[in-house]
Write a protein that binds this DNA or RNA. Sequence first.
DNA 1: AATCGACATGGGGATTAACT
DNA 2: AGTTAATCCCCATGTCGATT
Length: 744
Amino acid sequence: MQKVPMKFVMKYGEELSSPVYLRLPCGSEWEIELRRCSGEVWFEKGWPEFSKFYSLDYAFWLVFGYEGNSRFHVFIFDRSCTEVDYPIKLPEKEKADYEDDESVEILDDFPTSRRRKRERYSSLPCPLPPKKKRKSYPRMHPLTEKDKAIALQRAIAFKSEKPHFKVAMQPSYIFGNLILPAGFAKRHLMHQPHGNAILRLPDGGAWCVKLKIYEKGKVRFQRGWLEFVRDNNLKTGDVCVFILIKGIELAFEVLFYRGTEAANCSLSPGGHAKGARAMDQGKWEIGTSSSHHPYAGKECSGGLNLETGYEDHDDKSVEILDDLCPRKSRDKSLVMPKLEETDKHDDDSNDDISRDSDEVQDDPTIPEEEETDYEDDESVEILDDYSPCPRKTREKSPLPCLHKKMRTCSSSKAAECNTNFPATKTQPYEIKKSFRSKDSYCSKSEVKKHDFSTMKEVGGLSSSQIFQKRTPDVLGREHSLAKSEKALALQRANAFKSEYPSFPVAFQPSYIHSSYLGLPYEFVRTHLNKQRSSNVILQILDGSTWPVNFKYDVTPRFQNGWSVFARENNLKVGDLCVFELINRNELTFEVVFFRATEAKKCSSSAGHGGGAIDQVEIKRSICKVKSGYENGPSDTSLSAVEAANKFVSSNPFFRVTLGLGSSRVLRIPTSFSKHFIEKKIQIVTLWVDDRMWHVSLTVHWRNALKLSAGWAAFAKGNCLTEGDVCIFELLDRNNISLKVYIFR
DNA sequence: AATCGACATGGGGATTAACT
DNA sequence: AGTTAATCCCCATGTCGATT
C-alpha cells in the first residue's frame, strides 16, 4: 500500500472517493482503491499492480498532481531523478510525426517593469549627448509583478519539446509590437531571412506578421501583429505561448492563457477568439488523452503534429508549484529535471540547444509525447509551498556567477540538455537515456522555485552555461568537468526541493579561493530584505555550523567566515550547494552539497554531496515519524521514549535507545533475536519509510547478534544521535526485513 | 592576504517618439 | 494608424583600489 501524504489528505481528503484514477503522461490510467484508516488514506487495491507494472523501486520519486474528482496525473522518476519512459499508448497519428522536436524552453519571459530609477544613474553629472525631444505621452503602465506572477502560474504547466517562448502581454505589446526574447531569437531566428512569420492557432486560424530581425539579436513581430492582437482580443496580462514550427515557412503555434480568467481556468490554454470564449465559459476539457485535448490531432501547416506533452521537465510546473521563488526556482517545482547526457555532442557547439534539437529532429524514431492538459492542476508539492513571487525581468541563473567571462558567453549555451526520447517503448518501462536540463525557473519554485527552475535560457545563464564556459584557465583545474558530471550534478541539484527559501550555487574558483561568495540578488531581496550586514549561520547536515558575515552593499555576499567554511568543507570547483534559509530570525542556512565528483554516482551514500538529497529527505521523514507518534514536536529524549513506548504492532519488534557516541554496530536484544532471528551471518534489510538499507547481521560471543557492516551508514544516513529511540519491526523472518521507526 | 566598499559594464526588456 | 528604432534604465556581477 502507499500512504497518501497527510498534508494532501487534510486538504482534499474529503473529496477523495474510492477508487481513484492515476493517469500517466503516456495516457494510461489506473484504477486504485482507497483505504481509509485512522484518518489516513492509502492506495490499496491496484497499487501493487501499478507499482509492479512500472517497476517502482526504492528511491523512486512519484509526483501526484490532483485534477479533482479523485483523479491524479502521475509522473515517475527513478532514483537518478530521471523520468521513466512509460509504456505508452500513442494514437497512430501521433506516432508518425516526430519532426522538429526541439526541447527549448523559454519559460521565464515575464519581464517586469524597470521603471524604478536608481539613484546613481540619476545623479550622474551627465554631460550626455543631447537627447531627442520626446512628446510627453502618458506612459503605459506595465504589468505589475503580481499580475505577471498570476499569468505565469497559469502558463507554467505548459511544456513542449519544441522551441517556444512565453510572453505576458504588456501594454506596449498590445498597442505596439512584440519583442521576442533575445535568447530565443538568437538561437532560432537570427539566421532566418527577413520576412514574414505565420502565427497559427490550433483551430486553424492564421495571421501573417512581419518578422523584423535586428543585428543585435532583437527580433520583433511587426506588421500584422496588432491585427493578431485585435482579432484574438489579447489583453494586458494574457500569456501567449509561441511554439516555433520550422517548416517550409516560419510559423508559430500560439496558445493563450488569459490573464483575466486566471481564477477560473488556471492552466487551460485558450485558442484564439473562439477558444477564448470557450475558456471564458470554463468549458475546457481536462485531457485524459490526446483526444480530449482541444488541440488533439491538429496539424500545422508544416505537416507537424503540434501535440507536445505538458512535460514538467523544466523546473516549472510541478517543481515551481512547490516553490516558485528561487526557488524557485522555482520558481521552483518537484519536477525532476532531466539533464541530457550530451556525450554525443562533442564539438564546440554541442551545448547549443538548436543543434541538439537538430539531432533530435533527425531522429525519426523519436516519439512525440502525448499531450496532457491539466485543468486545475494541483499538486501536493506545488500547492503547499507555492507563492507567486515576482519574477525578475531578466531571466537569471539561480547560480551566482561572479566571473565576467561567463556573462559574455552565448546564450545558446544555455541549454545543453535536450531530451531524446527513446525510440521504442518497452514494458514495463525503459529509463530514458538522456536528460534534459530545466531551462527555467523555480520553484517549487520556483522552484519550484527555488528556482532551480531558473536555469533558463533566455537572457540569463543557465547552470549549464556556467559549467561549460569554464575553461581550464578559469577553473584553475586541469580540465573542466565532464559533461556527465555536470549533468548529473545539476540533475541532482535540480531534483532537490526545499520547503525553505533556498538558492543553489555552482562553485567557481573565486568562490573557493576568494574570501567571499556572491548571493543571488533576487534571493536576498526576497528573503533577506536587503539587510546591509548581519551574521548568518551556515549549517551542514551533520549539524556542524559556521558563522559567516553577510554583507550587502551593491553585491550581496557572504564574506567573513566564508573562506573557512569553504575550506573546512572541502569545497571544490564544480560542486553545487543549495543554501536553505531554515531560520529567518537567526539567519541560519542549511547547506546541502552536491559534489560534482560524486554526481555520477548519484547514489544515496551518506556524506556531503553524494547523498545530499537523500539525507535531507531522511531527516524530514524522521520528523514525520516522530511527529506522527508524538502528537506534536518535542525535543526531549524523554518524549522520544514515551512516544516509542506507545508503539504497537502485530509484528514482533524491539526497541533500542542509542547510547553515547557513535557505534559502528548495534546489538540486537537477545530476547528478540533468540525467538525471531536465525543465528547465522546474513544480510538484513532495514526500512525507514520507503528507504532501504542493507546491513550485515553477524553472530558474536554467546550467539549475540549484531548489525555491523552497513549499520554506521544507516545511522549516519538517518542522522541518528544519542538519545534517539529506534523501533525495529520484523516484517519478514525468512529474509530478515526490519522496518525502523525513529523517535528523537 | 583577507576584507571591504564602490564603481563599471554589458545585457536586455520596456517605452517612447519619430517616421511612413 | 501603424511601424521602426532610439532611448531609458534596471539588473547582475565583475573589477579594483583602499583598508584591515
